[in-house]
Design a binder for these strands. Sequence first.
DNA 1: GTATTTAGGTCAGCCATATTGACATATTTT
DNA 2: AAAATATGTCAATATGGCTGACCTAAATAC
Lengths: 178, 178
Amino acid sequence: MADLNTISSQPQPAGHSPPPREPIWDLIELLFFAYRDFVSDADDALATLGFGRAHHRVLHFVNRNPGVKVADLLEILRITKQSLGRVLKPLVDEGYVVQREGSTDRRQRLLYITQAGAALAMMLARLQTDRISGALAQLGPDAHATARTFLVAMLDADGRADVLRIVERARSGGVSRP
Amino acid sequence: MADLNTISSQPQPAGHSPPPREPIWDLIELLFFAYRDFVSDADDALATLGFGRAHHRVLHFVNRNPGVKVADLLEILRITKQSLGRVLKPLVDEGYVVQREGSTDRRQRLLYITQAGAALAMMLARLQTDRISGALAQLGPDAHATARTFLVAMLDADGRADVLRIVERARSGGVSRP
DNA sequence: GTATTTAGGTCAGCCATATTGACATATTTT
DNA sequence: AAAATATGTCAATATGGCTGACCTAAATAC
C-alpha cells in the first residue's frame, strides 16, 4: 500500500515560494470517499431508528457536554434555532435527551443525555472508533498524535482555538447528570 | 500539541479480544470539524456562481475523468440519474461541461470538461490543495504518504479497490478532449 | 418598578440535495 | 423482430438547512 504514494508534489526548486504546483488530487478525492464511508456507519444505524445525521450530531455533543446550553450547541453546530429544534424535539420526545432549567438562570434549558441516549451515542461512537483505530493501526507508533496533528491543521485558523476548546472540554465532562 | 494526545487506546492486555475501550472522541470530533472547514472553501467560492457542493463533485470528476460515462459518474458519486441530471444540466447550460455521443456506442453521452470548467475546477482544487498542503507541512517527511495511508485505511474494505482505481485512473487522464 | 434585553420556542415558507417509481427514446444486442 | 441498455424526464417525497416574524418567561438595566 505504501508504494503507490509519492505521486504529486514533485521536488520543488528549493528556496522559492512554491510555484503553482499540481493540486493534490489523490488526497482531495480520498477525503471525499473516506469521510463518506466514515459517516455511513452511523447513518445506517440511525436510519433504523428514524434518525438522521443531524440527530447524531446533537446526540453526540450533548453526550460529550452534559448540561450544555442551547445557545452553545447552536454555536458548535453552526445551525439555527429552528434547525436544532427540529432534530432536538424527537430526541427529547423519545427519551434520548432531557432538558432542565438552569439553576442560576431559569431561562436556560440545559441539555442532558439520558441513559438510553448515552447508550445510543456510545454505540455509534463504537462504530466510528472501530474504523478510526483500524486506520491508525496502518500508521506508525505515533498514529493517534499524527492524525490529530493533521486534522487540527486542516481546521480554519480562525476557529481552531474554539474547536480545540470543544474537543478538550468534552474530555473533562461538563456538568452533572440530571 | 503532541503531548495531549495519547489518550485513548490504553495498552491492551495481550491475547484478549480488546475489551470495550474508550471511544476516540477527539478524532471523531476533529473529523467532523476538519471536513466541514475543508469543504467550506469550495462551497463559498461556488455559492457566488449559484452552484453548490453537488455541482462541485460533478465538475471535479468530469475534470479528472474526461470522457466519463454518465453511468460511471452515477456509480462514483452513488447518486441517482435524477439527482445527477439536476446538477449536470446547469453545468452544461453554463458551458462548464459538454456532452458528446460515444463513438462506439452512440447511446452514451460522454462527459468532457470545457476550458471554463477546467479553470473553475482548478481554482477550487487550488483552495483545497492549499489547505491540505498546509496541514501536511505540520507532519513529518512522509506526510503525503502517511495521510494517504490513513485515508485509504478509513475506506470501506469492500469499496477500497474501486476507490483506488478511481484515484489512480484520474492520474492517467482518461480520454481525449472534445 | 417599569423597560429592555436575553434564552429559548415556534409558525410559515423557501432552498438544495437526495430519494423512488414510472415512463420515453434511441441504440445496441440477441 | 425482440429484448436489453444508456440516458433523460416527470411527479412526488424526505431531510436538513435557511429566513422572517412573532411569542413567553426570566434576567438585567435604568
